[in-house]
Design a binder for these strands. Sequence first.
DNA 1: CGGTATTTTGATTTAGCTCAACAGACGTGG
DNA 2: CCACGTCTGTTGAGCTAAATCAAAATACCG
Lengths: 248, 248
Amino acid sequence: MSDKRETPLSTPSLQEHHCTVDLRLEKLGMVPFFQDLPEEQLREVNKKCTANHYSKGETIYRQGDSATMLRVVVAGNVKLAAHTLEGESVLLDMLQPGDFFGNPTARGRDVYSETAETQTSACILSIRLSDFREVMNRYPSVAMAVLDITTDRLNESRQRIQHLSTLPVTKRIAHILVTLGNKFGEKDSRGLLIQLPLSRKDLADMAGTSPATASRIMSQFQNDNLITSGRQWVAINNKAELLRISAK
Amino acid sequence: MSDKRETPLSTPSLQEHHCTVDLRLEKLGMVPFFQDLPEEQLREVNKKCTANHYSKGETIYRQGDSATMLRVVVAGNVKLAAHTLEGESVLLDMLQPGDFFGNPTARGRDVYSETAETQTSACILSIRLSDFREVMNRYPSVAMAVLDITTDRLNESRQRIQHLSTLPVTKRIAHILVTLGNKFGEKDSRGLLIQLPLSRKDLADMAGTSPATASRIMSQFQNDNLITSGRQWVAINNKAELLRISAK
DNA sequence: CGGTATTTTGATTTAGCTCAACAGACGTGG
DNA sequence: CCACGTCTGTTGAGCTAAATCAAAATACCG
């Protein structure tokens, strides 16, 4: 009784994305924390950036690598994951164009505490941490915007701790689906399609459960017509009910 | 075979702490993110602060309260906890003198996402968020210091997510004990005494487990001579072994 | 010294894990 | 365009870590 068909995700065509100076400038201006910067200064920041193109599944940096660059997603998606010695992995964040990653801190650990990998082909800007800190020192609005984003991430992260500590897996997954729907969802014939390759293992790594359990729960949601899902994709049919499940 | 005696924690005597202007100024200068500020500007910041004294167990603010003030611990300890609708609680952070709390962000949620409660009697400085943001705008070094601390907290928080997702309770508690020992430990005849009222329920709320399970694990650690513990206090006898347990 | 909150410990239950086999979807090369 | 191999997802059976429930013991406080 499955409604599955071929992958409905639209693959971004970044292959011939040349990342010219002008294009980079335009993208930089779209980044939330550079939005207040006058064009002239934006141009200056731009000079300090390097653009790189990655294909799907490439590793941008590894947990433990020396951390000297701050990065910004220009196009595509990136996931941040931490790996344990035993090979288990925990998915820490899924990033969109405009999001920065790589720690903006200079003190303490100067190695990355997580691994960054592209989930789709992607274009990434890099700027030396020292240069970025200089920009923040010169333009407080940039520093404040970065602080606000970091604070939001801290709050999200704490909410996740709360969920891991108090909610059963079903509610955690329901909540994750709603969150992903809000962030990556696009209206579609199938409902709210999550525009992101999303495997059962990814879901499990986000919810702190096993792929088998994630699969069972997704099957149940599908039976209840809350979602439609296939290999590496999920669409939400009844967000309100998922939200109710996650909260109740 | 217990080595228990009366509470060995030293109770800070803040009762007659008057928080005079001079004393406040001295304390402000000790706060990490004001350290780079010249005395003159410190004096100016000081004028915008209010000092308050709280006795043990008082609530400073509640989850959901409108968030207009940023706070700094001058003396004593404060714990941040989130509460679920069902009454379960999750302990998010334990604060020391010099730590700030209450979200330093203006956008989005302008209500506190956690409850702040004193664990000992405490002296707390408050400054209006808008005033603090103005200070950060004027003195980038303050903004940068706040950003660095927030980033550290985000990393700690993500590590905790990883532990909740991948480690069994015993390892999580061993890790928490080591961390608390490093942060709040004081050398003592009993070993490394954690200078903080710390119940089994607190430990459980930090480890995402039940008080009963926390108690069983602490009993086991005590049998193995790794810790000495009584009602609301814990001393670490063998930090190296606890660390080994948490990592292995 | 009595009262209360905390801690310990036992007995039972259960959510979710692990292991394992199978099935469906996708890509690739002929 | 089809056949094959591989990777992803599904589902069952059994097991286990930890939760829950409950009672007893201990520490602290007035």
